[in-house]
């Protein structure tokens, strides 16, 4: 198990002004695993993920990703780690001045191992990824022409461009209708099987947690209060934990 560890977060702390958002979080992710981080809105789930990819600097604690200390990594080392991580942002974060095709091409054209590919080869990868997320018909559309669910799927296809070993899903079902939410949940499972990726899924959607998790942790007041499989946690006697399943 030790050798399969992708992420190891230890004693993470982060405050914004006087407000402590993360207060001593420990977290691990293992290869091939779908880990759900469940918590109410504003409890710092996204902050942890942003610290993991160093979009934010924590106040204290250590973060190892693929065995490297992310917080001490130089620019090149950090970029090497980032190419192994896919990140699906809450709203998709598509570049709105580019079509869907160009959105997918953008990271590929700027990363060493894909830069050498011809346009034809690159187009094949783009089409394959868009087919995986069921969005091939939207390949030449602009982000403004896509619905919320389509933007998330396009964002997911873009994050697959660098063949990541793990994907971070930031609130994948938030703001979507139940039907589209189910489709996204199915997609998360499909991507894991198809691309053999591990995933961290941060959500406050209990249905999403049940459908997609192999293991889940519950975040409350900046601390992890429970860790285990969905059914184990649902049966837990702890009143604080029970509240999340109501």
């Amino acid at each position: 198990m030790e050798n399969n560890r992708i992420i190891q977060v230890s004693n993470l702390h982060k405050s914004f002004g006087d407000k402590t958002v993360i207060n001593g979080v420990d977290l691990e992710l293992f290869a091939g695993e779908n880990l759900v981080v469940l918590g109410k809105s504003g409890t710092g789930k996204s902050v942890i993920m942003k610290c993991i990819v160093r979009l934010m600097q924590p106040d204290a604690g250590t973060i190892h990703v693929f065995g490297t200390d992310v917080l001490k990594a130089g620019e090149k080392e950090l970029n090497r780690i980032r190419t192994r991580i896919g990140y699906l942002f809450q709203e998709g974060a598509l570049y709105d001045s580019m079509s869907v095709r160009e959105n997918l091409k953008f990271p590929a054209k700027r990363n060493a191992h894909l830069r050498r590919l011809s346009n034809k080869e690159l187009d094949e990868i783009i089409e394959r990824n868009l087919e995986s997320v069921g969005l091939i018909d939207a390949i030449d559309k602009w982000p403004s022409e896509l619905s919320g669910g389509m933007k998330k799927r396009a964002g997911l296809a873009r994050s697959l461009m660098l063949s990541p070993e793990m994907i971070i899903y930031d609130e994948p079902t938030t703001g979507l209708d139940p039907y589209t939410s189910d489709a996204i949940n199915d997609l998360i499972i499909k991507i894991r099987e198809e691309y053999k990726t591990a995933a961290v899924i941060i959500t406050h959607d209990i249905k999403c947690a049940r459908r997609t998790s192999d293991r889940m942790v519950i975040l409350n007041d900046g601390k992890i209060i429970a860790n285990g499989k969905f059914e184990e946690l649902r049966a837990a006697p702890d009143e604080q934990v029970k509240l999340f399943f109501i």
Binding site: K50, V53, L55, N79, R80, R82, T83, I85, Y87, F89, Q90, E91, A93, L94, Y95, D96, F106, P107, R110, N111, G155, R158, S159, M161, L162
Partner: peptide, 17 residues
């Protein structure tokens, strides 16, 4: 606007500059 909609963050995490 790109900062608000996390487009700049998305570029950073995909190891582009």
């Amino acid at each position: 606007s790109m900062r608000v909609t996390e487009q700049i963050d998305a570029m950073e995490v995909s190891a582009t500059n």
